[in-house]
């Protein structure tokens, strides 16, 4: 088994802080599905592009790093036996059918760091 990160590209993230469950329904359904299949390792939904702050060199600016139609709206890490299996999961991400898409990248290393309890 190998781990793949799936980066979600969309016009913007649906996950505004005041988003209603209805607005998040398709994203959540996909995440639940992948989790139930036992493939989900970790998942993060990001807030919309207006909340982004970028740093290039010493300069801090408002907004996403790249000026593009799409932003990274979220990402998740899955476990799959090979690229075809990973693509099969990624293909089902609703972003692919809603004008955006996903990028699949093999994970080199890493994970959630254990933090000291205060």
């Amino acid at each position: 088994m190998a781990q793949y990160a799936i980066l979600i590209y969309a016009g913007d993230s649906a996950h505004a802080l005041d988003a209603t469950p209805e607005e998040l329904e398709t994203c959540d359904a996909h995440a639940d599905e992948v989790e139930q299949e036992g493939a989900m390792v970790a998942a993060f939904a990001l807030t919309p592009r207006d909340m982004a702050t970028s740093i290039r060199g010493d300069v801090v600016t408002d907004g996403p790093f790249l000026e593009a139609k799409e932003v990274v709206a979220g990402f998740y890490v899955i476990e799959a036996p090979d690229l075809d299996a990973a693509l099969e999961i990624a293909r089902r991400n609703p972003a692919t059918q809603e004008g955006g898409g996903v990028e699949v990248r093999p994970v080199h290393s890493g994970g959630v760091t254990a933090r000291p309890v205060e």
């Binding site: 190998a2 036996p81 090979d82 690229l83 075809d84 093999p106």
Partner: peptide, 14 residues
């Protein structure tokens, strides 16, 4: 090898 593109026949659907 890195992305693990499998060495197999595609399934009927693909």
């Amino acid at each position: 090898s890195t992305a693990r593109i499998p060495y197999r026949m595609p399934g009927a659907a693909e």
